[in-house]
């Protein structure tokens, strides 16, 4: 464990807590893409299949359980909670995320570290995570204005993978064997997808204006 990875995990954890706070405090999920949340739930379930078979560390196990439970809780809230689901922007959240799922799985079957069920699902979760934010970014573009908590959520989510890139650079130089090309390349693509959001987020912060994404 290095400081970059710890910072990344904490940023990721905070982003999920910010989202849960927004939904719980405002009893609203307006501006949040259910499709992105469903993709994240799939990412965690597909990636943490080894949760009960391989014990790596207490920290690792606790964080996996937190990520799986929180992502499922958010999806449940947005689908089933009678108050929250009313504020879901169903007509704006129209990204065809099923295509993302099929494509990522297809790529994972071709490009993986080892052609086993677990490695294919692991690669699938890595690729899916890279593109999971797309429905959310499209929804933000469509809805124009971004409320603070949702903006912070996306910003933190982008920051977490950026920290992980520093972690991979660190591990590349420190450890003799670097076998994380799938994660590193996919993580770069993932962070690049946030680039335009980061740009507008920084502008809104600099001009102390409300975050407004060009339609």
């Amino acid at each position: 464990m290095n400081i970059f990875r710890l910072a990344g995990d904490m940023t990721h954890l905070i982003s999920v807590l910010v989202l849960l706070l927004k939904i719980y405090a405002t009893k609203s999920c307006s501006g949040i893409s259910l499709k992105t949340q469903e993709l994240y739930a799939m990412v965690f379930v597909a990636r943490y299949l080894d949760l009960f078979t391989d014990y790596i560390s207490f920290y690792n196990t606790v964080m996996k359980i937190v990520f799986i439970l929180s992502s499922l809780a958010i999806v449940w809230c947005m689908r089933m909670h009678r108050v929250v689901k009313r504020s879901y922007d169903k007509e704006l959240d129209t990204f065809r995320h099923n295509i993302l799922i099929v494509v990522c799985f297809g790529v994972a079957v071709i490009i993986n570290e080892k052609f086993t069920l677990r490695e294919v699902f692991w690669a699938f979760s890595i690729y899916l995570e890279a593109v999971a934010i797309l429905p959310q970014l499209v929804l933000l573009q469509r809805s124009g204005n971004v409320d603070n908590l949702t903006g912070q959520y996306v910003f933190l989510l982008g920051g977490y993978r950026a920290f992980y890139i520093l972690n991979w650079i660190y591990r590349y130089f420190v450890e003799q064997r670097f076998s994380r090309w799938i994660s590193a390349i996919s993580g770069l693509i993932q962070t690049a997808l946030y680039a335009d959001f980061f740009y507008y987020y920084f502008l809104s912060w600099k001009n102390n204006a409300k975050l407004h994404l060009p339609a």
Binding site: D9, H12, N60, M63, E113, K114, Y164, R177, S179, R180
Partner: peptide, 10 residues
């Protein structure tokens, strides 16, 4: 081999 290394990252 790299595939056997435990995935210690989240």
């Amino acid at each position: 081999s790299s595939a056997d290394d435990i995935k210690d990252e989240l």
